[in-house]
Design a protein around this nucleic acid. Sequence first.
DNA 1: ATTTCCTATCTTTTT
DNA 2: GATAGGAAAT
Length: 662
Amino acid sequence: MAGFDISALNRAQREAVTWLDGPVLILAGAGTGKTRTVTCRMSALLENGVAARNILAVTFTNKAAAEMRERVIEMVGKKRGKDLTVCTFHSLCVRILRRDIESVGYKKNFNIMAGGDQVGIIRQLIVRKGGAREKLKPAEVMSEISKAKSAELPLTGIEDRLIAEIAVAYQNELRAQNSIDFDDLLLLGERILTEDQAARDYWRDTFRYVTVDEFQDTNSLQMRLIQQLVGPPHHICVVGDDDQSIYGWRGADTTNILQFETFFPNPKVIRLEENYRSTEAVLKVANSLIKKNTGRREKELKPTIMGGDLVRLVAMPGDDEEAEWIVQEILNQREEGRALEDFAILFRTNGQIRKMENALREEKIPYRMVGAQSFYDRKEIRDVLGYVQLLADPEKDIALLRVLNTPPRGIGQNTTMLALEHSRVNDCSVWKTLITESFLAQLSTKAGGAITKFVRQVEDHQRMIVDGKAPGVVLDSWLREMDFLPWLMKQCKTDKERDARNEAVSQAIGDVTAASQKGQSLQDFLDKTALDADKNDDDLDKKSGVTLITLHASKGLEYPVVFLVGLEEGILPHKRSTEEGTKDEERRLLYVGITRAKERLTMTYCATRTKWGKKEACEESSFLRELDLDWIEEENYDDLMGEEASDEELRGFFSGIQEALQ
DNA sequence: ATTTCCTATCTTTTT
DNA sequence: GATAGGAAAT
């Protein structure tokens, strides 16, 4: 019984599915049926008698992992597929670390530090080490730390002295909190496998067949991790496309894919070049662009869907018109019977979304956003999670400090500073300080009372959990007791904001409940939330409407109708990339964007754009001059709008008069 | 201690 | 045009 239909695959795909042993490199261009090939290959492993628990597939996002798992299970059935491990590098490492971290000197109940909390620590340290006037950006420090860790170089070796000092202090701080960050996850995972032979044997024996998806996005540390994890006979299959490498800024190293054979000798190399996604026109334009990059594995997307509409390139007078026109265009094309889910608007920077959102809302068109603010990084959610962390372990100082006076309960800056100082002097957690008599004695009655009340709350609710009450319920009643929601609502300016936050909080509580019902501990839940930055995507599929998405987040997705907006010099290629000499990566980014389109692709650029509330003149992107014009139809806003344009002018005229009268 | 109001800065991209 | 962090007012 074949779980998949091998005859539905083309020659190269079939080869990938039948060549199961030893190192395999699959170069899969955009839209060439990569996911299908990989999932078929995993089914094939199962059918050839490899046990599911011995198969590991690593992806870059949780979403991709969930999808891949689901698709394999669809093919082979739940029974045979349920023990597969499909996860991200980071979750894999959490799994390794939760078992073996003691061999590198951390406690097993370590905490994962992510997002805003990390920024918070760095920001504090910048002030402490550099003074209040220091305007070093946390992001820059974090990026340097990340670079050093990924290269396994000592933090003291960072060139900038101040950054090095902050980096070391940061690491000490994490260490003191028994916390590790994203890079540590990989770093320690690799170190365990390198140094602890028993652990290495265990994990190698567990994962005998390893697949790595989106291989072009791996960094050198991840490569070393793979090398440690995959011993002879090297049953490793990597899948990727160097032309879609868009995470260089995060350390992704295309050497891994360009010189794969130096890491695993004599790999079977398979190229997937037949594209089943896009029309000929779209592919010709994409190919003409990517050809301009140097140092790539030479390949071309071969169309299987011939002809198709020309790619449209529309010149816009400004970003207002751009948004307005695209919305009109969506309305028009919907008349032709397209669903809203068919449309996607792709942009380079998050700052471009707002205009588009407003325009869509004005026409009451539902939309869904991907790649905007992460669910778990929202203030109110981090507060709620802070309380969860306290329930799990009140000695997590970061969580404690975060919620100590949120919502305000009479524990102000002074009291907090005293507590911090006390815990530093006595080398204990802040929580320990708060329950120390001698500390409480030095406070005013008011502050002391507030602290005592808080401590009692924490203890009471912890006890409820120990007594077996559902964590979700405990959390909910605690939040009620402190009037968390009313306080949160009071801060909101608009009803929309109120709704959003209200929903977010109740969803977070629901998540806690759901996790505990699934038998997960609070720590498991917190791990998951730390790693699962793209939580929103869960309900993405449920939500209907036009998709608004960054180019980065769009990789791997496809839409019948794609609008690529803001193709201006300085935006794409981004100004910073031109300065840093990474224009090739920007070109790949545009390539990724173009190849998302199945049927119709429209690209737009503006003559002016509002930046920081001020209009600025823009130039069209230099990439546009690299495209194959044979497959492009150039248009401009005024011609397309015709009479409406004069309407517009008329309206402008009246508003001019109104202004003059005021 | 808390709220409110002002100003400085900001915009790549994310596990 | 938003937002976060600081100073001033309550």
